[in-house]
Design a protein around this nucleic acid. Structure first.
Length: 597
RNA sequence: GGGGUCGUAGUUCAGUUGGUUAGAACGCCAGCCUGUCACGUUGGAGGUCGCGGGUUCGAGCCCCGUCGGCCCCGCCA
């Protein structure tokens, strides 16, 4: 018996045809003298009916069939009576009247129900992860995996069409102890030495530019041994690309072109041909985030000037120390209860905020700051925030970075709670002019904000040189902007990149800024510094997160929904139970011993 | 490393102030059923209340510890 059709393709036009379907039993409805079976495969579900009267042998076999049995049926496509059609199924206008039924394989009773009314009754995620092969039979999850395949295909289409070439770079690389923790692979041939898995193919793609390959891309697996999040896994996939002889705008065009092509062809989503641009400084000021979700407003408002003359000691101190006092206005929520504002206060405390001040503009004005600031000042703040009767004003004071982080996160949290996010909207932007360095307070050192090969802005080059060469001006590093940029869709950082340094003098300057001696730099990146000597073209590029892009396309907030075999938040695979032990002989061969706890 | 939250039947959950034999739905097993598509219907089986300890006459419930899932902070050049 050969399959003639999938379970998703039969329509009324097939009426009368003899067909063979194969698939899994999604559901059986037994009526004694006949039995309905919902037969499922990747493409859909088709109802087949087995009658004792017309197919006694098949009907007898159907008696013993259970969910997830694998069966083949042969029979005629018949049009359903008007009242018996099922509008919920794409194949609901027909059914297959079975003549022959073959059990291709039986199945144990599944540990959880694949199809239940309402996805909120699904089995818990750890159960489903242990039996991932069953979870993956769920049409919703299969659609995500299929969407991902389409997205990757669309990416290849785009770059192939733009004259880029796909180049594979090694998975076994060398550890460069900067950035994320590496996954380490021991070498048997060189006992005691180790490879590292790529955190990204960054240096290698730059070397392809030095090699004159000009336009490179790769669907690259990346590995970072850091803690997980709802949108972060230890291994993930990036679209990695690099091009020579380009400026930032030319890279932006490729970011826009690629995402627009993928979102249009895979998701039917139209994004603007040219995306809005916003500097990092503006994004932080207006949204408290370098990846703002622009599907709603509720921008941050700076109240520092209005409070510069305050007697209230905590605020005065914060302003004196260069801090800020910002607020957001929640429309129509003057009715926030004490419990709710307490919850929001707990929320901002996670980000280091000391407290959450509030003003509720109801029939009368109430505020946690009424005693501290006085009624007149409260009214001034309301005016400054342009809040209206019925609104709530939420205020955070503190260090600039803490105010941005906590209020930026609060803005997102309130939008979620208040249902301010239009899920049918897709708001994208390119954030530009990221800072070149971040200041690490613990070590009082400056570390690369993007990576150590990022080019400074031309406008800031002199300041950069001064900061590096004059120890008394070292703090200026914090002001140097880079030719670095991110692509943001709906509050997700979907891609990031930069124009790279192609002159060895500036690269040396950058290593010095980062506190890397020439010897250390040579030790870590010697091969790359050598390469820079031999005619490096100006170049730049970006890397896009495949999973995050697919999360947006699939409308999920969980990265595990767009990966076939994901790991748990504690970086384990519950299906294969990895990571696991290895034989002592394997360790011996590698010259490795495990130090007990 | 830290915080929050959850853990009771195969699954999703309920379980009162600590008090008799821990319940429901779905699933499973056996029967009946000529048009279902969340089929209906009759009956049945199924529990180490995550694990360990403690308090108590008595613990699913209280306390301590521990393990695991999820979310967040730190971390993620």
């Amino acid at each position: 018996m050969e399959r003639t059709h999938t379970c998703g393709e039969l329509r009324q036009s097939h009426t009368g045809e003899q067909v063979v379907l194969m698939g899994w039993v999604a559901k059986k409805r037994d009526f004694g003298v006949f039995t309905f079976i919902d037969l499922r495969d990747r493409e859909g579900v088709t109802q087949v009916v087995v009658s004792e009267e017309t197919a006694a042998a098949a009907h007898a076999k159907a008696k013993n069939i259970r969910g997830e049995f694998v069966i083949a049926v042969k029979g005629e496509v018949v049009k359903r009576d008007e009242g018996a059609k099922n509008a919920k199924l794409s194949t609901g206008e027909i059914e297959v009247k079975v003549d022959e039924l073959l059990v291709l394989n039986d199945a144990a009773v599944p540990p959880f129900q694949l199809e239940v009314a309402g996805s909120e009754n699904l089995a818990s995620e750890d159960t489903r992860l242990k039996y991932r092969y069953l979870d993956l039979r769920r049409p919703a999850l299969q659609q995500n995996i299929i969407t991902r395949a389409k997205a990757v295909r669309a990416i290849r289409e785009y770059f192939d069409g733009r004259g880029f070439i796909e180049i594979e770079t090694p998975i076994l690389l060398k550890s460069t102890p900067e950035g994320a923790r590496d996954f380490i692979v021991p070498s048997r041939i060189h006992t005691g030495k180790f490879f590292a898995l790529p955190q990204s193919p960054q240096i290698l793609k730059q070397i392809t530019m030095i090699a004159g390959l000009d336009r490179y891309y790769q669907i690259a697996r990346c590995f970072r041994d850091e803690d997980l999040r709802a949108d972060r896994q230890p291994e993930f996939t990036q679209l990695d690309m690099e091009m020579s002889f380009v400026n930032r705008e030319q890279v932006y065009r490729e970011i826009e072109g690629m995402f627009n092509h993928v979102m249009r062809t895979v998701g039917g989503i139209e994004l603007p041909e040219t995306w809005p641009r916003m500097t990092y400084a503006e994004a932080m000021r207006r949204y408290g985030s370098d990846k703002p979700d622009l599907r709603f407003g509720m921008e941050l408002i700076d109240l520092s000037d209005d409070l510069s003359d305050t007697d209230f000691a905590p605020f005065a101190e914060i302003i004196a120390n260069g801090g800020e006092i910002n607020c957001i206005v929640v429309k129509g929520r003057a009715d926030y209860s004490r419990k709710q504002t307490d919850e929001l206060q707990e929320f901002v405390k996670r980000y280091g905020a000391g407290a959450l001040g509030w003003i509720k503009i109801g029939d009368e004005i109430t505020s946690s700051l009424l005693k501290a600031l006085g009624e007149e000042k409260i009214k001034q703040l309301i005016a400054a925030a342009e809040a209206e009767t019925g609104d709530a004003v939420l205020i955070v004071a503190g260090k600039k970075s803490v105010v941005a982080a906590s209020l930026g996160a609060l803005r997102q949290e309130v939008a979620r709670r208040e249902n301010l996010i239009d899920r049918s909207k897709y708001e994208c932007l390119i954030v530009t002019e990221f800072p070149m360095f971040e200041h690490d307070e613990e070590t009082d050192a400056y570390i690369a904000a993007h990576h150590p090969f990022t080019s400074p802005m031309d406008e800031d080059l002199e300041m950069f040189k001064t900061a590096v060469n004059d120890p008394s001006e070292h703090h200026l590093l914090g002001n140097v902007r880079a030719k670095a940029y991110d692509a943001v869709i709906n509050g997700y950082e979907c891609a990031g990149g930069s124009i790279r340094i192609h002159q060895k003098e500036i690269q040396a300057l950058n290593f010095k800024a980062l506190g890397l001696s020439p010897e250390k730099a040579r030790e870590r990146f010697g091969f790359f510094l050598d390469a820079l000597e031999y005619g490096t073209p100006p170049h730049g590029g970006f890397a896009a997160g495949i999973e995050r892009t697919c999360m947006i396309l699939c409308g999920t907030e969980n990265i595990r929904d767009v990966m076939a075999f994901p790991k748990t938040a504690s970086a384990q695979d519950l299906m294969m139970d990895s990571p696991g032990d290895v034989d002592a002989s394997q360790l011996d061969e590698l010259g490795i011993g495990v130090v007990g706890e």
